[in-house]
C-alpha cells in the first residue's frame, strides 16, 4: 500500500499575497490563518461552524474556516478581514458598522463583515430578508443584531 503523508504542501493566495506552506493535514484553515500566517482578525468562537466568527471568503464564497482543513484549500484564493480596508481606507461596510454601532465587543465583527460584504458583492441591493439570511449564521451576543442589519441596509441603500 501507498504511504500517505500527514504533511501537505499548499499554495494559497491570501488577501492577494501568495504563500507556499507545508501544513499538517489536521490543521484547520482557521488555525492556518491565525497561527501560521498570524492573521488573527479571523476569530474562533466555537470550532464547529455554529457561530460564524471564523467566516472568511474562499474562492468568492463565505465559509466557516474552522470546518475546513488547510490541506483542502491548495490552489485557492482567500480573503480575510485583514484584506478589507485597502491602504487603510475603510470600506463602506466597515464605515457603516461604525456609524450604526454594529460592533460592541468586536469579536464577532470580522465574521459579520465577511458574510455581509460577500452578500453585497453578489447582490448589491439585498432586501432585509436576504440580509438576515446571509448573516444569520453569524452569532452576536452584544448587539441584538438590529444595528448590524441596519448597517448593511445602509450600504445597500447607498449602492442602489
Amino acid at each position: 500500500m501507498k504511504e500517505y503523508s500527514k504533511i501537505v504542501d499548499i499554495r494559497v493566495k491570501v488577501n492577494g499575497a501568495e504563500y507556499r506552506e507545508s501544513v499538517p493535514a489536521n490543521m484547520t484553515l482557521l488555525h492556518f490563518l491565525r497561527e501560521h500566517l498570524m492573521l488573527t482578525g479571523t476569530k474562533e468562537g466555537c470550532g464547529i461552524g455554529e457561530c460564524g466568527a471564523c467566516t472568511i471568503v474562499l474562492n468568492g464564497k463565505p465559509v466557516t474556516s474552522c470546518t475546513i482543513l488547510a490541506a483542502e484549500v491548495d490552489g485557492s484564493e482567500i480573503h480575510t478581514i485583514e484584506g478589507e480596508a485597502k491602504n487603510y481606507q475603510l470600506t463602506d461596510l466597515q464605515q457603516a458598522f461604525i456609524e450604526h454601532h454594529g460592533e460592541q465587543c468586536g469579536f464577532c465583527t470580522p465574521g459579520f463583515i465577511m458574510s455581509a460584504q460577500s452578500l453585497l458583492d453578489r447582490n448589491p441591493n439585498p432586501s432585509r430578508e436576504e440580509i438576515v439570511e446571509a448573516v444569520s449564521g453569524n452569532l452576536c451576543r452584544c448587539t441584538g443584531y438590529e444595528p448590524i442589519i441596519e448597517a448593511i441596509e445602509a450600504v445597500a441603500r447607498k449602492k442602489s
Binding site: G41, E82, A85, G106, T109
Partner: peptide
C-alpha cells in the same frame, strides 16, 4: 474603538 474592531486589528 470602532476602527480597530471593524478591521480585525
Amino acid at each position: 474603538d470602532g476602527v480597530e474592531k471593524v478591521t480585525g486589528t
